[in-house]
Design a binder for these strands. Structure first.
Length: 480
DNA sequence: TGAAATGTTGGGGCG
DNA sequence: ACGCCCCAACATTTC
């Protein structure tokens, strides 16, 4: 009797541990054919951005090495590629872990149906969410729209997340005689080597993911609830790109966090706070599943007539390049450009400036983050930009406008974060590091800064632009 | 997962 | 000892 073979379609689950599709195949006696398909065509508008592609390349390299170089690499429409691979390899089954982007939900549903029509066995699994979106509903049967009741009443009261699954003890690879293709054929790495600095910050791949989490547990977990807001400290886990590509699952993170907290007597508030951040990720996916239009349409239609600024000035470009003249904002935007990542507190600050002080549409921020973040994630990115803009579910009220000075002085009190990413200000005394335009000529001279030459004048008057934003946001009140 | 304006309280200086 | 003022610190309200 010949052994049955299964294509394991890898997507955002680039790991061997706690991989439900792979686990199912190996524990049920299938010989395995791992495959990755780069399907830019189906992704359309949400084709992966540049920073994500760099990460993906590294991550695929890592998982392929763990799979003893058995991964098949293909580019093209997933349904065409799978059909061809089934023909070429003679596979009996296709297994994968589910994704939740609207374009994937639709595509995968069609693929599943057509495979079944062709008498191919298909199984799909949950490898990336602690709670399936369709399992969590209010008593009246409709989806939650506010985070706290969603998380507390909907998720936590429902059930504890499942335990992670072990790495397969043994993987039998099918002898299929089909060309595997090359990772390099996917052309994920750009010709201009802008990513060289990112290589020093990150270790993509399953091992790198676990190492990163371990570092956080030891150095940053205690005191997380307070210091998670401090971009000048190492109190956040930076696990987001690893989770996005599925190098580690939220189930593994959840379990590891709680077990470590228990054993090492980490204060409960720190443990619960970290878990609730995983909860925010779940909430974003939940919203994306139930309201797939949130990627582009205002979740709250009363924002549809909002008077956004037309794109005639250089404001957007100055924001993107970290040349707004507001130090905490420029530090964040440059951290993003250099490392593919930005501290969460600073994401809120730069977002608020773009959308409220500059009155630029949240789409522009969403697009820029999509291209530059290594953790770019359709669910989190869409939900978070709408949250900042005020148009989202459980969003910041329209009048909640961050003052980047106050935020900078509160969360980067010594100015160390600014000094790291805005080196032209590194000699400014800390009293003026967040507001160089208030420093006298002597102080500026001593710090070696000429405003407008070494470092820009502020892009907007914060007080006046705040007033302007409040007036603009009045229109949404009338529209409701 | 705000900021600014406004209101309240209470200690200390001082006549 | 007392009233008065100032003002920091905190609380509440408003946007």
């Amino acid at each position: 009797m010949t052994q049955k073979t299964a294509l394991i379609w890898f997507r955002q689950d680039l790991r061997l541990k706690d991989n439900p599709a792979l686990h199912y195949a190996t524990t049920n006696g299938y010989a395995v054919i791992p495959v990755y398909i780069l399907d830019d065509e189906s992704a359309a508008q949400w084709k992966m951005g540049g920073a994500s592609r760099w990460w993906l390349h590294q991550s695929l390299q890592s998982v392929n090495s763990d799979l003893r170089e058995h991964m098949i690499f293909r580019a093209g429409k997933a349904d065409d590629v799978l059909t061809e691979l089934i023909k070429d390899t003679g596979a009996d089954a296709v297994f994968w872990n589910r994704c939740y982007e609207p374009w994937r939900v639709k595509r995968d549903k069609d693929i599943k149906q057509s495979l079944k029509d062709d008498s191919i066995e298909v199984e799909t699994f949950n490898g990336s969410l602690l709670w399936e979106p369709w399992e969590i509903l209010k008593d009246d049967g409709t989806p939650y729209r506010v985070f706290t009741p969603y998380y507390r009443k909907g998720c936590l009261k429902k059930k504890e997340p499942r335990n992670p699954m072990p790495r397969p003890e043994r993987i039998t690879y099918a002898d299929h005689g089909t060309d595997t293709g090359q990772l390099g054929d996917l052309e994920l790495i750009p010709s201009i080597k802008w990513y060289e600095q990112m290589e020093t910050f990150w270790t993509p791949g399953e091992n790198g993911a676990h190492a990163r989490l371990e570092t956080f547990l030891e150095d940053g977990f205690k005191g997380y609830k307070e210091d998670r807001n401090r971009p000048d400290r190492e109190n956040v886990s930076r696990i987001s790109p690893h989770i996005h590509f599925g190098e580690i699952s939220p189930h593994q993170v959840w379990e590891t966090i709680r077990a470590y907290g228990e054993i090492n007597s980490i204060p409960e508030k720190d443990v619960d706070c970290y878990c609730s951040e995983l909860g925010w990720r779940e909430f974003s996916y939940y919203l994306l599943y139930h309201f797939p239009h949130i990627t582009w349409e205002n979740f709250q239609p009363k924002f549809n007539d909002f008077p956004w600024n037309a794109q005639e000035s250089q404001d957007l470009e100055r924001w993107q390049k970290g040349q707004t003249g507001i130090p905490i904002v420029d530090a964040g935007m440059r951290q993003l450009w250099q490392t593919g990542w930005m501290h969460n507190r600073v994401r809120m600050i730069v977002g608020s400036l773009l959308v409220k002080n500059l009155l630029i549409h949240w789409h522009r921020g969403e697009e820029w983050f999509w291209d530059t973040l290594v953790d770019a994630d359709l669910a989190s990115n869409s939900a978070s930009w709408q949250w900042v803009a005020g148009s989202g579910a459980d969003a910041a009220p329209y009048f909640r406008i961050f003052n980047p000075l106050t935020q900078g002085e509160k969360f980067d009190p010594e100015g160390e974060y600014v000094r790291e990413f805005v080196p032209e200000l590194k000699n400014m005394p800390k009293q003026y590091i967040h507001k160089p335009w208030e420093a006298g000529p002597l102080i500026l001279k001593e710090a070696g800064v000429e405003l407008g030459k070494d470092y820009p004048e502020p892009i907007v008057d914060l007080k006046a632009s705040r007033e302007r934003a409040l007036k603009a946001f009045e229109t949404t009140k009338k529209a409701s």
